[in-house]
Design a protein around this nucleic acid. Structure first.
Length: 375
RNA sequence: GGAGAGGUAGCGAAGUGGCUAAACGCGGCUGACUGUAAAUCAGCUCCCUACGGGUUCGGCAGUUCGAAUCUGCCCCUCUCCA
């Protein structure tokens, strides 16, 4: 019996937002949760201590990238991902399915799996559903993902149908070889923008013995209404007693719209990537710290933020660190953006607890100067 | 005082008669970024009343149909020798 359990603590009165507790082999996190991405067994520029300080619950890592470097056997030899990177919080690994999308120029898909050209040296690599699960078992993350194809947008109905059906077969193949009790395995709902395909995929996966369900194939270029419809279509037939994970979503309004529709888990590179590129999320809107106007601005990035960056440093200093390409700047900016989203989740959970998620969402959306990107 | 090298856009640096408002790099200014091939990428960066026009390559005067590129003089910088 797996010690992995989702407990629905409270459902918001007016929306489908849900407050939950996820017991991950003894480590409990509250949901909805935002999970920082640490592709190569590190959230870029942050130490595990930093992750603790910002109250990161679950951290992501990546099958494809760790398979190439350092190789799953090295990680296994180290005693698993937790020991290897010295992070004792829950770790979720993506299956490599996203690389089927992001490395599309250098790969081929067939029923068996995907043939990649290594982005490092061009060598030929074969990743199959079984191989992906095997690697993830060696990595020994807490939560593994089924190997899927993240379908590009737009894709026509016929292709989406064939790909989604293949992803379901791949999910079954992965499930069949997954044989460790201290790792959860999630199925991934695909189906593109087509309601019937999303629903059918969700239904079929829900009938299988997965520990949770992911919604994949979003934030790949579609507009917001389409994304939100994809979420609704995917969730409609997912079980209440299993966590739902919306993959790759991290824009502020997307997070809120996801929660409103019943999503429990999110991950995204957005906060850390835009931080490294100089963009910071604040309670007054997005700022680009490299702008000349911040060179002599001696106020914090966000006075309402409790992170290390905002508590100790000024915009002028961060601006200087960015211009001089100092690593500390990268670290502080990443810490800030992550903390910003993690805090947003904390507030969202409180709002759900108090049956006012709808108001909370409206308030944030009204007060934050978003543009169509949503952050 | 003698010998040599050189002065090009904010900086560095190509270019040595027309294809040059002038490569490239840095700096500067914008913008992008959603399961990370990303401390990355894209655009702009002489001036203007800007699908066109006006002034540039130390200064002045020339040669030439045409000069950053050739000639003369002048100014300045650096290196070496006294």
């Amino acid at each position: 019996m797996k010690n992995f359990k989702y407990e629905l603590v409270h459902e918001d009165a007016k929306t489908k937002a849900r407050l939950g507790k996820l017991n991950i082999f003894g480590k409990v996190v509250e949901t909805p949760i935002f999970m920082p991405v640490g592709t190569l067994a590190t959230v870029k520029f942050l130490s595990p201590e930093d992750l603790k300080k910002i109250h990161a619950g679950i951290v992501l890592s990546n099958t494809y990238h760790l398979w190439l470097r350092p190789g799953e056997k090295i990680v296994k030899q180290a005693g698993g991902l937790h020991k290897f990177m010295n992070y004792d919080g829950p770790i979720l690994t993506d299956s490599g399915g996203f690389q089927v999308f992001s490395l599309a120029d250098t790969r081929k898909i067939n029923e068996e799996g995907v043939t990649f050209k290594s982005h490092l040296d061009g060598s030929t690599l074969h990743l199959t559903p079984e191989k992906s699960i095997q690697i993830q078992m060696d990595l020994h993350s807490d939560i593994a993902m089924s190997f899927d194809e993240c379908i590009p947008y737009p894709s026509d109905y016929e292709y989406t149908k064939r790909s989604t059906e293949r992803t379901i077969r791949w999910a079954k193949r992965g499930l069949a070889v997954h044989n460790i009790d201290d790792q959860a395995l999630f199925g991934i709902v695909q189906g593109g923008e087509y309601t019937d395909l999303r629903e059918a995929c969700a239904k079929e996966l829900a009938a299988l013995d997965f520990d949770g369900y992911s919604i994949g194939g979003t934030s790949v270029g579609e507009d917001k209404p389409t994304m939100y419809k994809m979420i609704e279509d995917a969730i409609r037939y997912l079980p209440q007693d299993k966590p739902r994970y919306l993959m790759g979503v991290g824009a502020i309004n997307d997070l809120l719209n996801g929660i409103e529709r019943g999503v429990d888990m999110f991950d995204c590179v957005l906060p850390t990537r835009i931080a490294r590129h100089g963009t910071l999320m604040t309670s007054k809107g997005r700022i680009n710290i490299k702008k000349a106007m911040y060179a002599d601005d001696f106020t914090p990035v966000d006075p309402e933020c409790d992170c290390e960056c905002c508590q100790n440093y000024t915009k002028a200093y961060i601006n200087h660190l960015f211009r001089t390409k100092e690593g500390l700047g990268m670290r502080l900016m990443s810490i800030h953006n992550l903390r910003f989203l993690i805090r947003l989740m904390e507030e969202a959970r409180q709002a759900i607890r108090e049956d006012r998620f709808k108001e909370f969402k409206e308030e944030i959306l009204a007060s934050y100067p978003f543009d169509e990107r949503g952050f």
